[in-house]
Write a protein that binds this DNA or RNA. Structure first.
Length: 390
RNA sequence: GGGGGUGUGGCAGAGUGGUCUAAUGCACCAGACUGUAAAUCUGGCGGGCUUGCCCUUCGGUGGUUCAAAUCCAUCCGCCCCCA
């Protein structure tokens, strides 16, 4: 039993409370574990996998895992950690995002053993009277104890009634689903704890155990991984992007990623050269979401491009040059790799353009004689194919 | 309902008639150095071209003025206090 408990506790930020959890595990009842994600972005990313992995632990122990898609709550917007009012999302946006979610989840969880639910199923049908019954169970003062609400309130920043009530809806999910354990990110702590209180108000004898997981920083190493900060590594990023993004993180962050995303023993990597350790991490992650073969191939490609400066045809984007004469800046703009011609000119002026691996300046004249490789900065590489006019 | 305040570039935040494409910081992009690291340094960071000029931007609209982010009117958003 203590072995199981250790396994569950591993990597968590907090378990509230351990005593609860122990009791539940000892009851040998099949427990219901919930984790919810609002489909506010089309992709799940590695940050989410920290939670999903923990869910997987419970699944492997034979418990019932519920993956909750917050299609209803997404319309309101979780205010957690937000310093400003959230844009509400339309049903269409949400639907679009939801479509890709479940497949991505099953890259980790067992499809046959996972229950997927959508909270619009019950929240969408909630009677006004029942809704008031719910919100009567908490108080304004209680809500304002939440740090981000308090900060916003003190800074005279707006808090909409909708987001103010959000935590109650999440708590209500736990009531409807009779959840024994809820898993969430560290920033979810308030919402998760409120779930306990609300369950109690609804007459639950045993309220949910709360497990919080540390937040995974994004590739910038500062903010939490999130679509809105554009610092994420998505589960359906191409192997090349996934590999590249991991290689570009700082060493310090790499060790955190090891801790939160892999089971690798720290002792086995601490003596490695950071670069090699990072290679190993990138390989591990890409392998998990693709295959070993793909991960190895991706590494080769990566080395080819960035170490050997040797680019093979099948790994770069292609662009067909049709016109006979094109200015360099126009070509760069037309290739779609920059947003404006001015930007193209700027990059040229700053020496950021290479053609066939040689730096070129603005006087460079493009000859429509043979195909060539165009590099814009370090990361954008495309091959320009000269269309044969005859 | 009454009173006060506020709205500036992706974000934060200066600017209260011309010198404003708008200080500064963050973010972002490029270069140098590297391990496509990080840190640091340098440059850039609205659009267009015939590179010197043109066009567009300070919540929206209208106005005053030779000249408006800045003044006036009006509308919209947001915050606070009183009820």
């Amino acid at each position: 039993m203590s072995e199981v408990l250790e396994k569950i506790k591993e990597g968590t930020n907090e378990v509230i409370s351990i005593k609860d959890l122990k009791k539940k595990l000892e009851s040998s009842k099949k427990l219901t574990i919930k984790m919810g994600i609002d489909p506010t972005a089309p992709n799940l990313h590695l940050g989410h996998t920290v939670l999903i992995n923990k869910l997987k632990t419970f699944q492997d122990l034979g418990h019932q895992v519920i993956f909750l898609v917050g299609d209803f709550t997404a319309q309101i917007g979780d205010p957690s950690g937000m310093s400003e009012i959230r844009q509400t999302m339309t049903k269409e946006q949400i639907k679009l995002n939801m479509r890709t979610y479940t497949d991505q989840v099953f890259k980790i969880l067992d499809r046959n053993k996972t229950k997927i639910v959508y909270n619009s199923e019950w929240l969408g049908k909630l009677e006004m009277s029942e809704f008031f019954n719910l919100i009567a169970k908490s108080t304004v003062a209680r809500m304002l104890t939440r740090d981000d609400f308090k900060k916003r309130y003190l800074n005279n920043n707006p808090i909409s009634m909708a987001e103010f009530l959000y935590p109650l809806l999440q708590a209500y999910d736990s009531v409807v689903l009779c959840v024994d354990i809820e898993i969430g990110g560290n920033d979810q702590k308030f919402n998760l704890l409120l779930g306990r209180e609300i369950q109690r108000s609804y007459g639950f004898n045993d309220v949910q155990t709360v497990i919080t997981m540390p937040l995974l920083e994004g590739t910038d190493g500062i903010k939490k991984m999130s679509k809105s900060y554009n610092n994420y590594i998505a589960l359906n990023d191409s192997p090349k992007d996934m590999f590249g993004k991991i290689m570009s993180i700082s060493d310090e962050l790499m060790y955190k990623y090891y801790k939160l995303l892999t089971q690798v023993d720290f002792n086995s990597i601490k003596n490695m050269h950071p670069k090699d350790a990072k290679y190993a991490l990138a390989l591990t992650i890409v392998e998990r979401y693709y295959t070993k073969e793909i991960s190895l191939k991706t590494k080769d490609e990566f080395d080819n491009i960035f170490v050997n400066k040797n680019i093979s045809n099948d790994i770069i984007k292609k662009y067909y040059l049709i016109d006979a004469d094109v200015k360099l800046s126009d070509l760069i703009f037309k290739s779609g790799m920059v947003l404006s011609k001015n930007e193209a000119k700027r990059i040229i002026a700053q020496g950021g353009i290479k053609i066939d691996f040689k730096k070129v300046n603005e006087d460079f004249i493009i000859r429509c004689e043979k195909s060539f490789i165009l590099q814009i900065g370090k990361k954008k590489i495309i091959k320009i194919l000269v269309k044969n006019t005859n």
